[in-house]
Amino acid sequence: MAGLGFYINMANCIGCKACEIACKDKNEQPIGVRYRKVETFEGGSFPKPYVFHLSMSCNHCEKPLCVYNCPTGALYKRPDGIVAHDRDKCIGCQYCTWSCPYGAPQYIEEIGKSGKCDFCADLIDLGMNPACVDACVMRALDYGDLDELRKKYEGTDSLNILPSADSTKPSVIINPKPMARKGA
């Protein structure tokens, strides 16, 4: 088993942000904190303008720099691949927020600690789906063991808007729109 990862079908995503809201609701995030973010990219010019959306949370990387850098052990990788966060151990040093190329761990001012997507580990442990996956009206999000996902879907972990995947090896497969492909 390669560990859990997300599949994001950018071609189907309409940018409705239902995943983001479901995540915010499930994880009770205060204003400004978004464990899952939908970002919209526009470009080109008439007659060929383009727009695409990317819904991204923690990518539960194979080589998570946030976990290596965390001085308290609050961030750790579970055997199923989830990069989880033990809030009791966190001291709010914010080093994780300097360590993630995807901006996944975020500092929560109200509690003086960091927080991040934990793949809805509590739901996973009950055999349920992460809140974002269930909320997606376009069925653009899926999750599962990365090896299984790779068999099921075509995709990449490298886009022209993403930092290099080489350093952290994100557990994510994205089916990109053509203009989001690396080199496009």
């Binding site: 001085p71 308290t72 966190c90 001291i91 040093c93 914010q94 600690k113």
Partner: peptide, 25 residues
């Protein structure tokens, strides 16, 4: 003053095997 939870500062020395921040402290 940089920490969100200064009272738990001692937690920061537990990961010397991987974290330069632990080593620095």
């Amino acid at each position: 003053g940089h920490l969100g939870v200064p009272l738990k500062a001692v937690n920061s020395i537990t990961q010397i095997g991987s974290s330069w921040l632990s080593r620095e402290i």
